[in-house]
Amino acid sequence: MTKLFLSLAILFFSGIAMADINSGIEAYNEGNYSVALSEFENASQAGDAFGHHLLASLYYQGHGVEKNISKAVALFERAASEGYAPSHANLGLMYHSGDGVELNSEKALFHYSEAAKTGDFQSSFNLGQIFRKGWHDVAPSYEKAASYYRFGAGYGHVPSVNEYGLMFAQGQGVPNDFVESYAWMQYASERGDPSAVKNLDQLVEILESQGKLQQAISRAAAVNAQIASNSAE
């Protein structure tokens, strides 16, 4: 799994549940999983969504308790049904990869989408990957892929920025536009994305041959400003 299951996102909790969760997290970080289990169980039994999520994480990892994916899924589902986005993200990953559950495109897309609605850019990126290439019984759709990449790209999520830039270079789901491709690829390249660095070199050659490199540099400055503005909101 590529997502950290022991999420430390901050929500509003009852004082008792929050005290249990804080004590549990402290114990977890110290490797005292039996105490973490007890505290997370208390929070979960109090009806706290974060508590469900953390308890699910212990069952998923087998920390302080015998590993039980079925129980983990049930707890993640419970937290997700109460609107806890990291549980949606984890369930999306599990149903996407078949990690302890059967591959299920409907559930993967649903949970990724719910997580993406809350600003989880990795989940929106995963949706972009699914629709760009097609997966399981999901047909490819470059338009949908570009839309999902655009969401994360607008906030500087580097993998999304790189893929969004590639879509313009290839004319997939968006117009074929090397100036626009450069503008996004430059952002990812400056942040060390190796694919973007390589692709940017190729774009420079194309744009120089077309006499459009300065136009692309100006557009890149605008994209950087746009991302900075979005991220500051």
Rank of each mutant, 00 (worst) to 15 (best):
L91E: 03
I69R: 07
D99L: 04
S209L: 09
H53T: 10
N104T: 14
N32Q: 08
A85Y: 04
A169H: 09
D48P: 09
F76E: 06
E39L: 08
F40T: 11
Y33E: 12
S124G: 04
A89Y: 09
H53G: 15
A27M: 03
G64I: 10
S141I: 10
D99V: 08
E180Q: 08
Y33T: 12
L58T: 12
A146S: 14
G47I: 07
E208W: 09
E143L: 06
A153I: 02
V174R: 01
S38E: 08
G62S: 04
A220I: 14
G83S: 13
Q61E: 08
R150G: 08
L11T: 15
G92Y: 05
H53Y: 10
A108N: 08
V101H: 02
A27V: 13
G24N: 00
V223Y: 03
S160L: 09
D177Q: 04
V179I: 10
Q186S: 15
L109C: 06
K3R: 02
Q170D: 15
E190L: 11
E77V: 15
F50R: 00
Q129K: 03
L213G: 12
A80Y: 11
S123K: 02
V158M: 04
E66T: 15
H53M: 10
Y142N: 07
S195W: 04
S229Q: 07
Y187F: 12
L11P: 11
V101D: 01
L127F: 08
A17F: 10
L166Q: 11
M1Y: 05
V35Y: 07
M167F: 13
N68W: 14
Y84W: 01
P194F: 02
H52F: 12
E82C: 11
A74K: 06
A72V: 13
G154Y: 05
D48S: 01
A27E: 04
F151G: 06
T118A: 01
A79I: 14
I21K: 01
E30A: 03
E39C: 13
N199K: 00
D20G: 06
L8K: 14
F125T: 08
Q122E: 05
L103D: 04
A46I: 12
Y187I: 15
E233A: 11
H88R: 04
E66L: 05
E82P: 12
A56N: 04
E233C: 12
D201R: 06
V101S: 03
H96Q: 00
K198I: 13
N68Q: 11
Q172D: 03
H63W: 10
P86W: 00
E30V: 07
N162I: 13
I16P: 15
A108H: 06
I227L: 00
K133C: 11
G100M: 02
G171E: 00
N162M: 07
T118H: 02
G64A: 00
Q186E: 14
A72M: 06
L203G: 12
N42S: 15
G51T: 08
D193H: 01
S44Q: 05
V204M: 05
S34D: 14
S231C: 12
N230R: 02
L200R: 03
L200F: 10
G62K: 01
K144N: 09
M185Q: 07
L200K: 05
Y112Q: 03
K107A: 12
W135D: 04
A80P: 11
Q215E: 10
Q210W: 02
G98H: 01
N162E: 07
I16H: 06
S218F: 02
P159D: 05
A72S: 13
H157P: 11
I69E: 05
P140V: 08
L127E: 09
L213R: 05
L91S: 03
